[in-house]
Nucleic acid binder design. Sequence first.
DNA 1: TTCTGCGCAATGATCGATCATTGCGCAAAA
DNA 2: TTTTGCGCAATGATCGATCATTGCGCAGAA
Lengths: 216, 216
Amino acid sequence: MTEPPRPTLERRPLREQIRQYVTEAVVAGRWAPGERIVERRVAVELGVSQAPVREALRELEQLGLVESEPNKGVRVRSFSEHDLREIYPVRAGLEETAARLALPRIDDERLAALDRHVAALHAASADGDAGAQIRHGVAFHREIVAASGNALLRSVWEALGIEVWTTLSIRVYRMDLQENAADHEPIVAAFRRRDPATSDLLREHVLGYGGCALLP
Amino acid sequence: MTEPPRPTLERRPLREQIRQYVTEAVVAGRWAPGERIVERRVAVELGVSQAPVREALRELEQLGLVESEPNKGVRVRSFSEHDLREIYPVRAGLEETAARLALPRIDDERLAALDRHVAALHAASADGDAGAQIRHGVAFHREIVAASGNALLRSVWEALGIEVWTTLSIRVYRMDLQENAADHEPIVAAFRRRDPATSDLLREHVLGYGGCALLP
DNA sequence: TTCTGCGCAATGATCGATCATTGCGCAAAA
DNA sequence: TTTTGCGCAATGATCGATCATTGCGCAGAA
């Protein structure tokens, strides 16, 4: 289940590191929406060539963090509040499907994993650690998607990039974090008793994220 | 709605043409599952350089048509029947969501478009033109997803590559086409009367595609 | 015989350079 | 003044070459 802990020797492809660098810059707001991202400039900045930067940018375009037009280059996407909210119905639908598929096949091990995520969420909540709250919250939902046993569903869900968007929403629009750890407990309980309503419960739960108001 | 018919001067990026070429080769079965796709070989074959081939292959990896490992290259994915069926619950969930969102906002123009797609489907069915059946069937569902008004939902749905997988399923596993045009009419009717059950109807409809048996 | 490690060929990853398109300023014509 | 092109600078798209990793066969040790 968990990764075998081997001494990772920094062997990730350049492109991945570049992607992470650009993502961080956009999410942290160091690069403003609408701003051009010039492939060569980034390449020079990082001491690499244009090619891997290009590849990284294409991946980020897929994610929706940047947008590009042929022969006109890439720029940081500007996210309206409306854009940021669009993700929730999609997530909700995917996770509803995941719950439907997971319900008859979820086992004790997974349920225990869900419990652990909830516990971690409580802890992060108590610490007031927003980053940890996001991470553990996402991990909880990821666990359910994985429990569906549908690899395609998982990859589609992952491609949404929940963590990035959540972080960004909070920074840009000061969306309320609303990660009340307790909200997750009924979901685990529903899975445990194989409640057919679990999927609806999960959908409403996710839609609740999207419905929450902006802070003043 | 439809593309403004301008004199297209073949100005698509190379990468797109390459992607299409490779897709066609894989879907038609000219390149067998498991077969290596060597970037330079394809490049030479098409008289281009390695870079755009590489980009095209990454897009196809995203689509799931090929798979790659770092430093080991790309190969044609081998699709088990199980893999091919995984798409249906995902599609069903996405389209259920689309229908939910579309229900309160679908207008007569879109409903008319749905009617046209159904009519085209009938015609293709009568002609026994499998390709046209797939295309119009997909167009019908695409119309609903577009009617949701959720751009992210649309792009996620498009990223599934329904047409490619349907075509491939039929060729490789001889999945039954089952595109009974009449099956689509109740869906349009449900939209027309704003039936809250429309989304469930659509979900079941899509799941029906996945449930259909293989031909002998 | 079986196991180990070296060395080469193939090829993915990256680079530096070139080609082609786009955007824009400026000058001349209307 | 407004419009129309021209020409250049910036930069994305593509290219050809090089660097680095992988897979594999073979010689020699166990």
